[in-house]
Nucleic acid binder design. Sequence first.
DNA 1: TTGAAAGCGCTAACAG
DNA 2: CTGTTAGCGCTTTCAA
Lengths: 373, 373
Amino acid sequence: MLGIDGEFCSRFGPVSIVIDIGFETLRKPAAWPSIVIRVAFPQRVKMSDVARTAGVSVATVSKVVNGRYGVAQATVERVQQVIHQLGYEASLGAQGLRSHRTNVLGILVAEFEPFSTELLKGASKEVAGTGYQLLAYSSGDGGGTSIGWERRSLARLSGTLIDGAVIVTPTVVETKQDFHVVAVDPHTGPSGLPTIDSDNFAGAVLATNYLLSLGHRRIGHLSGRPDLESARLREAGFRRAMADAGVPVDESLVRIGGFRVESAAGAAAELLALPDRPTAVFAGNDLSAISTMDVARSMGLAIPDDLSVIGFDNVPESASVSPPLTTIMQPLQQMGAEALRLLVDLIAGVERDTHIRLPTELVVRSSCGPARD
Amino acid sequence: MLGIDGEFCSRFGPVSIVIDIGFETLRKPAAWPSIVIRVAFPQRVKMSDVARTAGVSVATVSKVVNGRYGVAQATVERVQQVIHQLGYEASLGAQGLRSHRTNVLGILVAEFEPFSTELLKGASKEVAGTGYQLLAYSSGDGGGTSIGWERRSLARLSGTLIDGAVIVTPTVVETKQDFHVVAVDPHTGPSGLPTIDSDNFAGAVLATNYLLSLGHRRIGHLSGRPDLESARLREAGFRRAMADAGVPVDESLVRIGGFRVESAAGAAAELLALPDRPTAVFAGNDLSAISTMDVARSMGLAIPDDLSVIGFDNVPESASVSPPLTTIMQPLQQMGAEALRLLVDLIAGVERDTHIRLPTELVVRSSCGPARD
DNA sequence: TTGAAAGCGCTAACAG
DNA sequence: CTGTTAGCGCTTTCAA
């Protein structure tokens, strides 16, 4: 790569030197003889660099990169050789901006927490072999403070960076023209939008019945984000199971936990500080269940002896807390995989069912015990 | 938004009608009188839409969007009003292409598996409040088939989409001009590149000593990806501990497991099919440990009675397998957080230590038992 | 078979 | 204070 090009130390006219140590070109001040120095800047190599090196136009390089017809075989080979040698890779941004196609699918989340990362794992497995690549974008809106993060993320990425998106727990989404979106565990339950969720209602019934079967009657419920359909369904399942068992729900034992560790802690503390506190708590999800256990421990309550706790989701973390959390499993990785498959089919124009509901299951570990009377 | 603009049903000249039902504009064929129809396509709204609606130029809108000085307060307010009303959001691709600054940081991984998603969780927590957003990009190269995925991903995203990157287990990376990269668990160990890793050597010694303390002497090792420094250090730690204990390493018990479930299964099967099979296995990471347990079970071996297995990483999954896996903890989330912090500091030009090594710890669960003689 | 030129949506001089 | 202009790196007619 290091070399000298052109005339050197000529006595017969303007000296013309090109020192080539890479790609970049430094031009001499106007007063100097015509000397050009190219320095090795390990900078981003762009299509024009390839074109220049291969001695063709950028248009030709573009055709080679995209496998278009109408380029001589010899040219194709030469260009590919240069691409390889220079390590050229097309800029996603520029490519998408121009062509509106990137072969990249987006997974839009508020935050990378156990729920969304499980979906990510499932989607990541499923995407192999589809020809797409995966781009996960976090709006950074962990606290759910700014509603509409999903709309903003979508607007920033759609059209120029991704060909379609899976949105995790969206609250509001409008469908755009020519852009496919799949919602996982959405705000409104099955709407017009293609949707993946699990049977939250049946799962909540399962959880509540399990506590009832252990003899619990004063059962508290820490409900999730009130704006999520899944949270509403879990609460509804809880109430249904209680009603079916003929056990009245004490409304003072039902609190909004909010699906996050921080928000759940406050509600749990209130619940457990009650004069006649519950003997068991059905938390809206694993994170709030874990939070409840922490709060209980800090109040000197033993689990499951003094308090039984059951969660929902079965995120990996639920197995590693102490005691291991009894919970309701949602097949999160499978949900991620199904969402991705659905999105790919939608883009391909495959006719298929656009609402998928997966079953939930009771996972018994050690955080629940028989009621003591 | 629905309305009619211009002349309508005029008897005195060419009819000029604009029916405005949104943003899009449908023009009449040339032969028609001058009629323009705008139809409500819920399409991507771009800066020019905002400019047109607000009655200013795109330059002005850009200034408002980016908070530049030199715009009248009244104009700012009007433009912001329109932005809000139309739900405008700047395209990441176009923005980055032009300005080379996006306020987005990238986390580049080969695949979303337990290791990288734990890092993601840590980084996600750390990014809050920095003003950056997070974009995780999977090259889709799970099998490690195509080396150089990190270079390709970097080339596609850097410069136009992300302001800096954390690369997870990279094998080769060149530093580019004006672009900051932090490597987690890299190929070559501390090199010129800013690096986060954990004390793999000490962790491996810990693991091996634990097995030795249980009375094991025939200890097998399933080493990880040979191209990763972490794998080499773990094997070195294993050998050091064995040597220090005066126990010779049986080379037939040391095999390449490769850090993935599939690749480890074969190596584990070979190891366990040996006439004089090991009584304990130190797997290169949790995934290969879990795989080893599966293989052992399928061969009728009970864990930990017939075979002790210890892993490395302490991914969440290790707690939920049966029996729960004894392993060496790397503080993965903390590593992700440190990597992100380091990257932010690097971009901000903060002078600081660019090599961070975090401690490892033994986590005793149930997959190891005393050696039976 | 090739390349010149227009333009994707945006930003940054620079005039007015 | 505002708009005009010239690109960022790429794809895509279209003419040579």
